[in-house]
Design a protein around this nucleic acid. Sequence first.
DNA 1: AATATAGTTTCATTCTGTGAAATAGAACAA
DNA 2: TTGTTCTATTTCACAGAATGAAACTATATT
Lengths: 265, 265
Amino acid sequence: MAMTTSTEPSAEEGPKASNMRSLSRALEVFAELQRAERPQRLSDLAKACGMSLPTTLRILRVLQDFGMVSQTDKSYRIGPAVLPAARSFLENDPLVVSARPVLQQVASQTGLTASLYTRLGFERILVARVDGEAPLRYDLPLGKRLPLTLGAAGKILLASASDDELQQVVAAAIAGGQEGAAFTVESLRSRLPEPSADYAYSADERATGVVSVAVAVPNRLGRPSESISLTSPVEAASEATLKAGVPELRRAAGRLSELLEGSVY
Amino acid sequence: MAMTTSTEPSAEEGPKASNMRSLSRALEVFAELQRAERPQRLSDLAKACGMSLPTTLRILRVLQDFGMVSQTDKSYRIGPAVLPAARSFLENDPLVVSARPVLQQVASQTGLTASLYTRLGFERILVARVDGEAPLRYDLPLGKRLPLTLGAAGKILLASASDDELQQVVAAAIAGGQEGAAFTVESLRSRLPEPSADYAYSADERATGVVSVAVAVPNRLGRPSESISLTSPVEAASEATLKAGVPELRRAAGRLSELLEGSVY
DNA sequence: AATATAGTTTCATTCTGTGAAATAGAACAA
DNA sequence: TTGTTCTATTTCACAGAATGAAACTATATT
């Protein structure tokens, strides 16, 4: 079946260009500003986002009015308004709020570091963390973007993915220049847990000297987009120790899931 | 040269409705979602923002595609994409980055808590903080929105404001339902430092049991939009102790200012 | 089941977002 | 200085995107 008529061109980058062109483009500019990690000039942004200078300028001006972007001289950067937004998310998001005590309990039960990740596009983001007894040496602050293809908490989110989805993941990994990531669907699939497995294990995968197990947080429909993990420096926990935490993790994930579904808005 | 370019009715709320209506409206929805502090239904958002249901829905869908908004059932909330954005801001913003060591030095010199605020609209936002010896009892996390009208770090930003600007500040304070804030330009002005003064002092003003001094970070043109402060619990520092820190603060502000102007992008 | 309320899709109209081109402003060289 | 090149900004006419009324569907509520 030749599929020349896919509704999605999909050859594009980032989130699909949904409706509302101007808004989508504005969010592209915003995303590009984050990617750049340094102040950008107008022409850089316009080129990077593939839009005209006037359009880019107009977008930047509006974003600036709302504090989402700051300008000094001719360079633009992410603005301070993102901070209250992030605070709002961390303090009010039902998942994050209910996750905190749950992670706390898992961490104290196991003595390991417990984390909550959420999927965003073809990456995952650290959204909550409670440290265990053996602190992780590397710092991994909230909001960090991590690959789906490496690390237990990423792979478990892909365990039940279709080949189509994996294909997209691989494409994104290549586009994003991820190192060490799988570059074919087959090699990626081979490293994922069995679709039947409900947890993933990884050692020295995303970061050397770090081992972890993770389970997905089920949600009513569709693929899971959240996972929770237990992590430890290799020397502080054996594979067996970690895996002993899985039942606890499972319970935690179940509790989170219920809290989400049950909560009445 | 005074330029009377104000073709703005300005009778509107929030950041002025600049060009690009659809984008401005989207940012209004996003702001409303933060204000609400809890998941909102479509119709609530539409009403709060004064726009039609279809329009609101379309905006939410795009924001959701980019992770700026999440949806569960029929309720919308701020999405996880704000976390990487905030991280990007904290790690890459030249002001924040260069402020950290400067605040560090002031804090260790004086033993007091040093903070950097930035103005956003008619509020200020805590953007960086280094704790002193006497920890503040109340927690004041990054990204917290605080009034301009209360507290040293707020008032110093208004010290050189025109009556017109103060009028807007007062209007915003009333609209935002700030308690304890000045409700007339006169009463506000009377509590502000003299325009000639370069620092502000406050005690028990924004928060009881807290005293602080602040200076503005000058920038090339226009009113300052950043300030740095020294704060302490009342019992840990006398007014004299705090004010003794002002010269140090001044120096810090000067250094920050230079760093900003000087940095070559 | 009947009714009311909230969410979603459709579609014609309008006005907004758009980029080409012109203009203004910087940065740099000679 | 003057000329040259690059970047940013404004103008403007047009295309098409954004819009809301209305129809429709889904979900609560009685």
